[in-house]
Write a protein that binds this DNA or RNA. Structure first.
Lengths: 217, 217
DNA sequence: TACCTTACATACGCGGCGTATGTAAGTCCT
DNA sequence: AGGACTTACATACGCCGCGTATGTAAGGTA
């Protein structure tokens, strides 16, 4: 007990003394491999679909093996969940950026919905978030992240309710239904032979529908 | 289009020349095995999901083997398609029966939508038609059957437009968006901890949204 | 009756998933 | 500092499920 402090030199040395490489902190390396796996899986899932994407293949593409995958994510579903959470966060960011640029809350809401449709046209989002995600992981509203972009829409709607622009409905319920409508619109548009024409129709109908929310139209 | 009718008409003339007797006609046997396979797959897909359902298992449950399945349906996806077409036809029948009972076209439309939500709560429909179907087969609007129940809704809407109850929007587009909204509502309700409360909210919002379609509310 | 076609069953190979095991590198505790 | 323990992967193995190629028996046809 007496010689306790004699060699009490802090072992967490000056880590980055200019030359990085070899001895980077462990947490960073782990985060990097996780990120690499998520990125590789994301590409594979988007291009081939969840079921057809081989874990051996895309882990090898990331310079790793399935061992790393199972260690960090448990199984294939766990990786999908991680991919989805990442994408959901990105979508949420994009949506809030868009709505913050709008001049009125109503415009913000409409812009968000249109942006959601546009994002849903991106093959990666459509395939992973809208098709494989629900099939493999179940109802999106039960996902851990609780669909951040749904919450964004909910918030926009709540503002509109508070300021008396739209009727006092339940904001979350409205967000979910509107989201569902935009989603099916996006699927329809993306697979149509004439996307532009279909898109026009869909937006027109969409605006007609949400006009039902307005206190006065 | 035309070739479907062609190969249906041709071979049926010679079929019953009076004495089929002991052994039943071949077409009937085939139809029966097909029906058995579809029924077995339908149960398996509903209970375990498409990906987890083993073809060996449920064909054996029907007293057959995978050989029969590949002969009649080509592959697992082909069987899923057959199952979906069967279920879609059933749903379409139920919907048109409901709408024909309504007293006004508007009520028919609303009843149909509510019925669609209720049907989507059934685990079999939810799992096969709403989750696995789109993930495995792609956008439902591209399915051969072209979603019979979408067409039912489209027809109801067209009536409402013709009689001037709702604004002159595109009927099909409206049917698709409304369908998407009801679908997400159903998923939400089915997985909620308090389905009754959620259901009430969803219906209320739904009615508010479609009120936007009305010429005068 | 003999031939041909059809409707399955059987047999086989491959690829993917999950797990059990190995190993090197990092971390902690005197 | 040094060892013991833990962590982060890679490697190896077995199982299962799919698709296909092949066999076979039962209609249908002349």
């Amino acid at each position: 007990m007496a010689e306790k402090m004699a060699d009490k030199i802090a072992p967490e040395m000056a880590s980055d003394t200019g030359l990085k490489s070899a001895a980077r902190p462990r947490k960073e390396m782990i985060a990097e491999t996780k990120a690499k796996l998520i990125a590789a899986a994301r590409h594979a899932f988007a291009r081939q679909g969840y079921a057809e994407a081989s874990m051996d293949d895309f882990t090898a593409g990331a310079g790793l093996t399935r061992g790393a995958l199972y260690h960090h994510f448990g199984d294939k579903k766990g990786l999908l969940m991680a991919v989805i959470m990442q994408m959901d966060a990105e979508m949420s960011d994009r949506l809030s950026a868009i709505s913050s640029r709008a001049e009125t809350p109503w415009q913000a809401f409409v812009d968000e919905c249109v942006a959601f449709i546009e994002m849903s046209l991106e093959p990666e989002i459509q395939r992973i978030m809208l098709l494989d995600g629900p099939a493999v992981l179940g109802d999106p509203s039960q996902w851990p992240n609780q669909s951040a972009c749904i919450r964004a829409t909910t918030a926009s709607l709540q503002k509109l309710i508070d300021q008396g622009t739209i009727r006092p409905v339940d904001a979350e319920a409205t967000a979910r239904l509107v989201n569902g409508a935009t989603l099916s619109a996006a699927l329809w548009i993306a697979n149509a032979e004439d996307p532009d024409a279909v898109s026009k129709k869909a937006v027109e109908v969409f605006l007609t529908l949400v006009s039902g929310l307005l206190v006065e139209r």
